[in-house]
């Protein structure tokens, strides 16, 4: 029990669309162990991003429970959720969500900008270091629209790491990258996982980055099933194509 960082039970998320109700999650269960490197796969629209938002304390579920370090977060108020987002988790959004008017450096600093525990010099130094780690040391003063899609993705990755989070939720972190850079990013994430014991939950379409002994969860019809790379391959799911 002690080594479980996130546990979701019977998780439901329904969206009301006028008369119809979209049931994105209909009772999903997942248990993420501390220090694990976990993949989530599933067809487009299967609820991967929805799940990530709930696990990352960004949204309230319609039903069920999400526990982080044994504490129920599904019923926390906005302030408690923002504290979790600021201190515990790093989120790499599918759509990057950088602030267009700010430089790469300021975007990376953003999560801790109002945190009084860290001085601006320290924060800037840390942000520059992270930008170098993701290979953007030469682009720190560029604004998002002066960066390529892949470079933006790397800014988003650096931003997710600025608060030195225990848990990193990455929603298609390599979607905009070529396979070489994508592999580099995965290498970096695996290194952080191994050396610093950070927990990674990664949504991806690219099975090439998944290793045979990685934990893989397959989300379909609003529920989660544990699977493996071998099983995915057996069902003919390879490369970037839809995983069904």
């Amino acid at each position: 029990m002690n080594d479980v960082v996130i546990e979701a039970k019977n998780l439901k998320k329904y969206y009301k669309m006028g008369e119809t109700i979209v049931k994105a999650l209909r009772g999903a269960n997942i248990k993420i162990k501390k220090g694990s490197f976990v993949f989530i796969v599933g067809p487009s629209g299967s609820g991967k991003s929805t799940l990530m938002h709930l696990l990352g304390a960004l949204d309230h579920p319609t039903g069920g429970s999400v526990k982080m370090d044994g504490k129920e977060i599904s019923k926390m108020d906005d302030w408690e959720l923002s504290m979790i987002r600021r201190n515990k988790v790093g989120f790499i959004f599918q759509t990057f969500n950088l602030v267009p008017s700010l430089t790469a450096l300021d975007n990376v600093k953003l999560p801790l900008l109002t945190d009084k525990r860290i001085s601006d010099e320290e924060l800037t130094a840390r942000a520059i270091k992270l930008l170098k780690v993701v290979g953007l040391g030469h682009r720190i003063y560029h604004t998002p629209n002066e960066l390529s899609g892949g470079e933006r993705q790397r800014v988003a990755i650096a931003r997710a790491l600025i608060n030195n989070p225990e848990i990193i939720l990455a929603d298609e972190p390599t979607g905009e990258l070529d396979s070489k850079t994508g592999a580099e990013i995965f290498e970096l994430m695996r290194k952080m996982n191994k050396e610093e014991g950070k927990t990674f939950i990664i949504v991806t379409h690219d099975t090439e980055y998944i290793k045979h002994n990685d934990t893989v969860y397959h989300i379909k019809d609003g529920v989660i099933k544990e699977t493996s790379k071998r099983e995915l391959e057996k069902n003919g799911m390879k490369g970037k194509k839809e995983i069904t």
Partner: peptide, 19 residues
Amino acid sequence: TKEFGVLKAVGWENDDLLK
């Protein structure tokens, strides 16, 4: 709106935004 949403998503409190 989107920018403020992003700020909230990365952990800004409402108080920070109010300020």
